[in-house]
């Protein structure tokens, strides 16, 4: 494992911790898209079906468990916690995420590394992760104002993707048989979705003003 991959994973972990901190400290999930969170929980459940069949490392196994548990806990909290769920911006979170689900699954049936149950679900999770942030970005754009923790949450998620691209570039030059078209192309698409957000995040950081997205 190289430093870029590790940095990426740590950014990913940080984003989840920031989100948990926001929900726990403010007892509020305003500005957070339940649909995006549901998609992420599904992404991890579909991808880590290999948890019991393929052992890579203790690090991988622990991280997989952490991602599954934390993402399902966030969904549970937003739906069931009686204080937190009152702050959910349901009327703003209207992105039709079932469309993303269906499209990702259809693509996974067509483009996969091998036509097996696990490989199809793995490809599905890669495609779904690439677009899962869309309901969140749409919600932020609709609400206009973005609170600090929510802004940082999306920032760390984007940073995680950026480090994964550096990781693939590094692996491409250091490994002899590195070809992961499915993961790399989906990863590029996923990172590109953050470009707009990053631009406004940078502006607000530079001017030291509150993050605001144009309507």
């Amino acid at each position: 494992m190289n430093i870029f991959r590790f940095a990426g994973d740590m950014m990913h972990l940080t984003s989840i911790l920031v989100l948990l901190l926001k929900i726990y400290a403010t007892k509020s999930c305003s500005g957070i898209s339940l649909k995006t969170q549901e998609l992420y929980a599904l992404v991890f459940l579909a991808r880590y079906l290999d948890l019991f069949t393929d052992f890579i490392s203790v690090y991988n196994t622990i991280m997989k468990l952490v991602f599954i548990v934390s993402s399902t806990a966030i969904v549970w909290c937003m739906k069931r916690d009686r204080v937190v769920r009152r702050s959910y911006d349901k009327q703003l979170d209207t992105f039709r995420h079932y469309f993303l689900l269906a499209a990702s699954f259809a693509l996974a049936l067509l483009v996969n590394e091998k036509f097996t149950f696990q490989e199809i679900f793995w490809a599905f999770s890669i495609y779904l992760e690439a677009v899962a942030i869309l309901p969140q970005l749409v919600l932020l754009q609709r609400s206009g104002n973005v609170d600090n923790l929510t802004g940082q949450y999306v920032f760390f998620l984007g940073a995680y993707r950026a480090f994964y691209i550096l990781n693939w570039i590094y692996r491409y030059f250091t490994e002899t048989h590195f070809s992961r078209w499915i993961a790399c192309i989906s990863g590029l698409v996923q990172t590109a979705l953050y470009a707009d957000f990053f631009y406004y995040y940078y502006i607000s950081w530079k001017n030291n003003t509150k993050l605001k997205l144009p309507a």
Partner: peptide, 10 residues
Amino acid sequence: KEQPQRHDEL
């Protein structure tokens, strides 16, 4: 045909 690569990333 080539076997799929092991998914060693998260």
